[in-house]
């Protein structure tokens, strides 16, 4: 789609369009295969045995899988929303400022979940949360929400911070000059400018939470299977196309969301 422009386009860079196209193609090639195998009649995700809807039917009747899928979606939504909100606040507080005491400490704290292998966070959370579970007698989803929120924070934080760092202060100063309160300046000026960073951060956090397996495996209590931990259990035996069928439904859902988002946006303008 790199349409040749007759006039000189300051934005264009040679070859970038091609790389992007190849990138998108490669991104979707495995996804296409995954979707195709969801319609496999055989019980194997690597051997094609004909067309069938049996795995969609089987997923539809499999309460465990459905519950796991909903739990995954729920967890990802809640955890990434909380993570994005607190990360955005933290990003605002840690950028565009002369260094102050504790700034480095904040960086280290916020990025810490990135730096520790998952299994270590998992084991330490197991030890600590188990104590809480014994003391309080409560072993609901709250622990999972907390754990997911924590490791999502750096993923939400870094894009927002990157966005803030090359944002210009002039507009906010102008707002202040026009007697806007700091809150008004933030609402009307900073926040709208920050939106792309927030969206990027939220989506990263969402995807990371949706994908997590090791920490979830150690934190979950009875009956708190998520889709990834369910799959982990299947890994040593057989991974059937049922998983592909569920993934396909997830994909369809996300495509539906995009389409809606797109249509709503179009109407607005």
């Amino acid at each position: 789609m790199a349409t040749k422009l007759r006039t000189f386009d300051v934005k264009a860079q040679p070859g970038f369009g091609t790389v992007a196209m190849i990138c998108f193609f490669m991104l979707y090639l495995p996804i296409a295969i995954l979707v195709i195998y969801a319609f496999n009649a055989g019980e194997n995700i690597a051997i094609w045995e004909g067309l069938s809807l049996r795995w969609f039917v089987s997923a539809w009747h499999n309460d465990t899988v459905q519950e796991a899928a909903f739990r995954s979606l729920f967890l990802a939504t809640v955890a990434s929303t909380i993570a994005t909100v607190v990360a955005a606040m933290a990003a605002i507080a840690t950028t565009r400022t002369p260094p102050y005491r504790g700034l480095t400490f904040k960086y280290a704290m916020i990025n810490q979940p990135l730096m520790v292998p998952e299994i270590v966070t998992a084991v330490s959370l197991l030890i600590v949360f188990s104590r809480f579970k014994v003391w309080t007698g409560y072993n609901g989803l709250g622990y999972m929400v907390l754990a997911h929120t924590a490791f999502c924070i750096p993923f939400a934080y870094l894009p927002i911070r990157a966005r803030l760092e090359n944002m210009d202060l002039t507009l906010e100063r102008a707002a202040a000059d026009l007697y806007a309160t700091p809150w008004q300046a933030f609402r009307r000026v900073t926040l709208p400018l920050l939106v792309p960073g927030i969206i990027a951060g939220f989506m990263l956090a969402f995807v990371i939470s949706l994908d997590d397996v090791v920490i979830t495996e150690f934190v979950k209590s009875g009956g708190q299977e998520t889709l990834p931990t369910y799959m982990l259990g299947q890994l040593r035996r057989t991974v059937t196309p049922e998983i592909n069928a569920i993934a396909t439904v997830f994909l369809a859902l996300s495509v539906l969301l995009v389409t809606l988002f797109y249509l709503v946006n179009r109407k607005k303008t």
Binding site: V123, S130, R131, F132, K133, V134, N139, E217, F218, G222
Partner: peptide, 12 residues
């Protein structure tokens, strides 16, 4: 994993 989780307690 199973042993570690049960040993830690609070599993239900």
């Amino acid at each position: 994993t199973a042993l570690a989780k049960v040993r830690a307690g609070g599993h239900g």
